[in-house]
Amino acid sequence: MIARLLRRAGISLIVLAGVLLIGFLMLQVIPADPAVAIAGPQGTDDEIEAIRRHLGLDQPILLQFVWYISRVVTGDMGQSVINNASVSAELLRAAGPTIELMCAAMIWAVPTALALGILAALRRGGIVDRLVMAVSVMGVSVPVFWVGLLMIQFAARTRAFPIQGRGGPLWTAEGLSHILLPATALGLILVGPVARMTRTTLSDALHADHVRTARAKGASELRVVLNHALRTALLPIITLVGLQVGTLMGGAVVTETIFSWPGVGRLAVGSIITGDYPMAQGAIIFLASAFILVNITVDVLNELADPRIGSRS
């Protein structure tokens, strides 16, 4: 198991290096010259040249990449060309609200999806089952920005909930009411796929031989469903939720932008729009690394949930 995880971590490192390379190349191909941007509209050619030398932009590209990597590894992702703020510091500040938003989305969406999926599997063809199928088709075809805009329309008209920004810590009423709409919009992405996966894997598992054994032992129906059928069906569900975290991060970018949520997603979009490329690059590297980390975590969870995986390889 340890060896497998190490190998997995190795692969992730390679992927991460690829992300860094793309981030680095992005800065190379963009039309704007960072030196010009830093020097500002009044910068003279000499000043620009000095800044360029100072940033090492006159050195060979390979060397620049090596420097770049060593800087990123030590947590230095440069400065914003807009306000000179440290990119790492800005990212760290924005990470909190993004994590908060994603957790808030998952905390209601995953249990809801599980419950819907279980009910659908237990009563196939019933009302919940049809609802789950409808919602999962809808969730796939209705983009999150559409849902978000609808909510804003609704909230603006009824003035029921705030629609802009973060209202402080979640344990305050203000904080809670602010996160309600964005978390709902973001969580909706998860409900359909997770409910459908739960329904499918659980209805298969309910017909498994070992579930029949559990019934033959005299286990109650609740115990049979939760402890035996769901327990073995959990694996693909965990995997799916893990993979959906990637989708969720994409959704967070959109949701944060719509609801002005001060997270990494809005930071990324905002910095791209304003041409703050070091900041944009930092945000993208940050999101990609988070994605990789989540995937490793899913792997570990899978291994813990199914003892067969570890011994298979």
Partner: peptide, 8 residues
């Protein structure tokens, strides 16, 4: 081979 719970 299938009558026992594989993850217990």
């Amino acid at each position: 081979s299938t009558a026992l719970n594989p993850v217990q």
